[in-house]
Design a protein around this nucleic acid. Sequence first.
DNA 1: AAGTGGTCTAGACCACTGA
DNA 2: CAGTGGTCTAGACCACTTC
Lengths: 245, 245
Amino acid sequence: MVKTSSSAPLHLMISERLRHDIHRGKYAVGEQLPSEHQLMAVFNVSRITVRRAIANLVQQGLVEAQRGRGVFVKAQHKVTRSLANPLIFFDEDMERQGAIASIRNLSFAQVPTPDEVAQQLGLRREDTVYCQRKLILTDGVPVAIDITHIRVDIGQAFARELQASLIYPTLDRNGVSIERVEVNLECTHATPDLAETLEIALGAPLLVNRYTAYTAADQPIICGETLSRGDRLSYAVVLTKGTRG
Amino acid sequence: MVKTSSSAPLHLMISERLRHDIHRGKYAVGEQLPSEHQLMAVFNVSRITVRRAIANLVQQGLVEAQRGRGVFVKAQHKVTRSLANPLIFFDEDMERQGAIASIRNLSFAQVPTPDEVAQQLGLRREDTVYCQRKLILTDGVPVAIDITHIRVDIGQAFARELQASLIYPTLDRNGVSIERVEVNLECTHATPDLAETLEIALGAPLLVNRYTAYTAADQPIICGETLSRGDRLSYAVVLTKGTRG
DNA sequence: AAGTGGTCTAGACCACTGA
DNA sequence: CAGTGGTCTAGACCACTTC
């Protein structure tokens, strides 16, 4: 590939060509791309340019590089989670979609209240809250990290139970009912530590679900956030006329 | 920065250090980072390594490089859009948040039905649909692209009106009421063309909002998707007990 | 004209994988 | 062991911005 007078950079021309080839099925999902060495020969460019082209594809989530093995076309399967369902039904949601969900508890502790949480739950900074962190997996692959904060005065009576099992059913059993949940959805980039625990590239897209749950008395008792891998999860919601406006 | 025996790559160590500095406020929003030349001297590494470190920060959405000028710390302000509100109220939403919204029509045409649309709207491939594409901006900065498909048999009577103004109010005026909207939210990477029109980096996170709107007779009449810049927009929803389950 | 980032080259060494 | 991708160097030229 001799540099033509066109203004597009070489690495972009190459990655666009490969992207086209992937889309056309020349390289199937799971299949290996030609090695850097081969691509250097095919396009007649330096290794750095080839690597830059591949980096473009990685950044678009199309391929995945494995050291010592090669570059492979990624599958684009996502699982869908209903925004309305609390995390308990996650297993059922996934099962319907042919995936096996599991949740690994990372930590449960009584901690000083972070500023944002204090604001959401109407607490002062001196107060403490329960903080539960868990890792959510489907088919053994990590898809999300969830960090939940619970008011101590609510959870105190059954703290041990909370720790051992899931939050919503525990609350339910103890007569605490969630009337309303305010949700905010956005997306961000993976920081180095998140990238590591979620097994994705630095800066890869993450779906962020921030939620605050209120009782019938309109008291906020739970808030938290779920950080999901953008390449693995999507949310579904149904809005009816009553809900709108 | 001499390579210690630690296993972390140099470029990561440098970008992490800079990330820390940004977080700590050593470099304020809008401020310029030291030039590549200066960073080479400070960390005692080659230019490629410095560039790689900066690329890491760009990929995390923290800084923005401008050719001939320098590297600058990005602002992290997002505007929030209510998922429940149709696009008409976008202006009001934005105004409340101190931003000026504008919508630029890109195209309106009667086109052959794409497969996905045919499935959503219950049409055959031979049918045609109206397709409206629009660019959504806040304060002159593009934040989203919206592509909407409308059933021809519904919109036929007032096609001209549809083209000239916004969809929902036009339908409303003509007695078509939306009873239910099914929404799917996920995130993806910007492809080269999207990156260009939305003025973001290749592979930057995008929020994808796919929607299908139904009439009271449970007939789907509109479907489409809004692709938003992940660094500029978030969605808000409120879920009440009735909606859940 | 000086300074900035963007592209590209040639070449070296390393770490990991798999036969 | 050969082949793969990951890191890093030194150096060149270009396009753009600012003075």
